[in-house]
């Protein structure tokens, strides 16, 4: 027997030896591929204008997760010409830097949503979510009429603070005004509406997303979230216009 065979012959008799060898062999790949993603700075270059989600948008994101939208819609435009032509500039790592978890997705039963923000009107989204076949007759998406129910905001402050603890840069004023901001974003005529622009930038949509400013619904949250997708930084558009030199 050559030495390596002898070595293995003996290893087969020692259960803890096999355990140690398996852990060693199965650890290397993960360490080499994952650890540098935290240390190499170029992996994620966060642009200055990137903002975290406003509370209403975050509530919408949680509903997007709850309903499993990610199972059919990706949010990751690959750097391929047909994807850029169809969906817009390819996605940057920075765009999902504040996303816990990321929602890149793995399947496009429906189209990519990374840049769906501002492509359709609020009214279109509301109609489409209540029954997609009202606006797209051959769609195979499920209906979501129950999104017109009231939005439960009881956990929202805790959710924003948890994300803050994980490193999402919500500032003190944002953390303190979660309850006000979640209502104000869907009430453009209220006194608090200005606070949204002050805290999250003037590009944030402040509208009665479901058409009714009186009642804060899950629909408000989901549509606010969808309208925010791809609009939280202008960086991807800058990079693309630099490309053809």
């Amino acid at each position: 027997m050559i030495p390596i065979q002898k070595l293995h012959y003996n290893l087969e008799k020692v259960s803890m030896g096999l355990v140690a060898a398996i852990i060693f062999a199965a650890s290397i790949g993960g360490i080499v591929e994952i650890a540098p993603l935290f240390t190499i700075k170029e992996t994620v270059e966060v642009p200055e204008d990137l903002r975290p989600l406003a509370p209403l948008e975050l509530a919408g994101r949680q509903i997007y997760i709850r309903e499993g939208c990610y199972a059919c819609h990706s949010q990751m435009i690959r750097s391929l010409s047909d994807e850029i032509d169809r969906y817009g500039p390819y996605s940057l790592a920075a765009e999902s830097a504040y996303d816990h978890p990321m929602l890149w997705g793995s399947k496009r039963t429906g189209p990519d949503l990374a840049r769906v923000g501002r492509k359709y009107s609020d009214a279109w989204h509301v109609k489409h979510l209540i029954n997609p076949r009202h606006v797209v007759p051959t769609s195979i998406m499920p209906v979501y009429p129950w999104l017109m129910e009231e939005l439960d905001t009881s956990l929202l402050s805790a959710q924003v603070s948890t994300l803050h603890r994980l490193g999402v840069p919500y500032d003190t004023s944002q953390l303190e005004n979660v309850k006000t901001d979640v209502l104000a974003q869907s009430q453009p005529d209220s006194d608090e509406a200005e606070g949204i622009a002050k805290r999250y930038g003037k590009d944030v949509a402040v509208r009665a997303f479901d058409g009714n400013p009186e009642k804060l619904t899950e629909m408000d949250a989901v549509v606010a979230y969808l309208q925010s997708l791809g609009t939280r930084t202008k960086e991807p558009y800058k990079i693309l216009s630099e490309k053809p030199k």
Binding site: Q62, S96, H100, P101, M102
Partner: peptide, 16 residues
């Protein structure tokens, strides 16, 4: 039952 993973963005994608 609500929680947020400690991993985010590209690192979360790789870990996932």
């Amino acid at each position: 039952d609500q929680s947020f993973p400690v991993w985010g963005g590209v690192q979360d994608a790789m870990v996932q």
